[in-house]
Simulated assay, not measured.
Amino acid sequence: MTTVHVSFDNKTYDVKINSQLHHRIGKEIADVWSPRKVALITDSHVGPLYLIDTQKQLEQAGFDVLPLQVPAGETSKSLVVAGELISQMAEAGFTRGDGLIALGGGVIGDLGGVVASLYMRGIAFIQIATSLTAQVDSSVGGKTAVNLGQTKNIAGTFYQPDLVLVDSSYLDTLTDRDLVEGYGEVVKTSALDSSDFFEFTGKIQSILDIRVNAQELSKRAIAYKAKIVMADEKEAGQRQYLNFGHTIGHAIELIARGELRHGEAVAIGMVAMTSRMARDGISKNELTVALKQRLEVVGLPTDSQLIGTPDFFERLINDKKNHGGVLNLVALESIGKPTLILKKVSDMPEFIG
């Protein structure tokens, strides 16, 4: 068992990483929570695979479980769906002393976190991350959000869980595409972190390599993210580095209307940003090449015709990182050395080229 401790001024929790945690869910959660009502939220992809067994383990550990399933996909990350879940919990008599468990990937983690933070102004929250994206990135750090209209993650909260369980065996039921999109976030983190981690991702040469090394990839990515969020919980400073590739990525992800997964859009965003920063003398050309190699070798896209379209620039205007007409763009001076570049939204057409 690998345990990463995440600690803030008024909150401490563990991220536990082990390939056998799916057999120990009841015990692990009973070690953190006393018996109570639990809303177990999942989606239509994960639910048929893991909901019954997870519910059984929780009930055997003394919890009163309300299973709640939503349709899989980004459309469930909405205020409407959050409101429906809150209504169902209220009808079931949930109180401030009860809890919510998110069983799923990034969408369910985000949605569950929003619901937990809003229900009676906040109830206890735990994440069981079943996708690589959730395991290496979104389950750690307490950022929760839902989409509104054509704007991604515009309504959300900072709300830390009481526990995060990361079990690589859940990845066995992911399609290759669902697995690989999460690897885009791993490459991002390795480039932000260190030469050692970046060299490790350079050894990943196939989708099978991702599966074989999933636990180690999660451990390294989580350790880096935990370090960053503990230093900057509310994204006032260095936590913004984690947005590397996301400004461009979020814009094209929305325009693609489901044709691009989040990690695929981030992969494109990283390469697009780095190539333009290299052109302007901030990054190095060989960094763009290295990023492309790591992403393309496992089938991730690194370019899109959506970049530079009128819709693309419209999404940048509505990006939540737009502060009074100025975007904080994340660039890499070198591996392990990210920096923030301030760019006016009005200057982005020239920057994108």
Score class of each variant (00 low, 15 high):
Met270Cys: 11
Ser346Lys: 02
Ala39Ile: 06
Arg220Tyr: 11
Asp347Pro: 02
Gly93Leu: 01
Thr133Asp: 10
Gly113Trp: 02
Glu350Tyr: 12
Val297Thr: 14
Leu66Ala: 13
Ala290His: 09
Ile108Asp: 04
Leu171Phe: 14
Gly237Ser: 14
Glu296Asp: 11
Asp9Trp: 04
Gly263Leu: 06
Asp232Thr: 01
Phe197Cys: 00
Thr201Gln: 02
Ile228Arg: 03
Gln305Glu: 15
Val345Met: 07
Gln238Gly: 00
Ala90Val: 03
Ala231His: 08
Thr288His: 03
Ser44Val: 06
Ser334Arg: 05
Ala272Gly: 03
Asp64Leu: 13
Ile25Ser: 05
Ser304Gln: 02
Gly263Ala: 11
Arg121Ser: 14
Val212Phe: 08
Leu148Cys: 08
Ile341Ser: 01
Asp176Arg: 06
Asp319Val: 07
Ala265Asn: 01
Glu253Gly: 04
Pro48Ala: 11
Glu259Leu: 04
Gly112Gln: 06
Met273Trp: 01
Ser218Leu: 00
Leu163Trp: 11
Glu59Phe: 10
Lys219Val: 05
His250Gln: 10
Ala265Ile: 02
Phe200Tyr: 15
Asn243Gln: 05
Arg239Phe: 12
Ala221Asp: 01
Ala90Gln: 04
Pro310Trp: 05
Ile52Gly: 02
Val146Ala: 10
Gln305Asn: 09
Arg36Met: 12
Asp9Val: 09
Gly258Lys: 04
Ala72Met: 01
Ala226Trp: 04
Gly142His: 03
Thr175Trp: 06
Glu296Phe: 00
Gly47Tyr: 03
Glu74Ser: 02
Arg261Phe: 06
Leu66Asp: 10
Gly325Gln: 05
Leu66Phe: 14
Val65Pro: 06
Thr173Val: 07
Lys152Gln: 11
Leu21Pro: 07
Arg315Cys: 14
Pro310Ile: 10
Thr173Lys: 08
Gly156Tyr: 13
Lys37Ile: 09
Val326Phe: 05
Asn322Ser: 09
Asp196Arg: 01
Gly325Asn: 04
Ala90Lys: 03
Lys11Phe: 03
Phe63Arg: 03
Glu185Arg: 00
Gln20Phe: 13
Ala124Asn: 11
Leu58Trp: 07
Tyr241Gly: 05
Gly263Asn: 05
Gln215Glu: 15
Phe244Pro: 04
Ser44Gly: 13
Met230Arg: 03
Ser190Trp: 05
Gln55Trp: 09
Asp280Ile: 00
Gln150Leu: 13
Asn318Ser: 15
Arg294Trp: 09
Asp137Ala: 03
Val140Lys: 01
Leu68Pro: 03
Val65Lys: 05
Asp53Ile: 00
Asn147Gly: 12
Ile108Pro: 01
Tyr159Phe: 15
Ser304Cys: 11
Gly202Cys: 09
Ala145Asp: 08
Val115Glu: 05
Ile123Arg: 01
Gly109Ile: 06
Ser304Asp: 09
Lys152Glu: 02
Thr133Asn: 04
Ala92Thr: 10
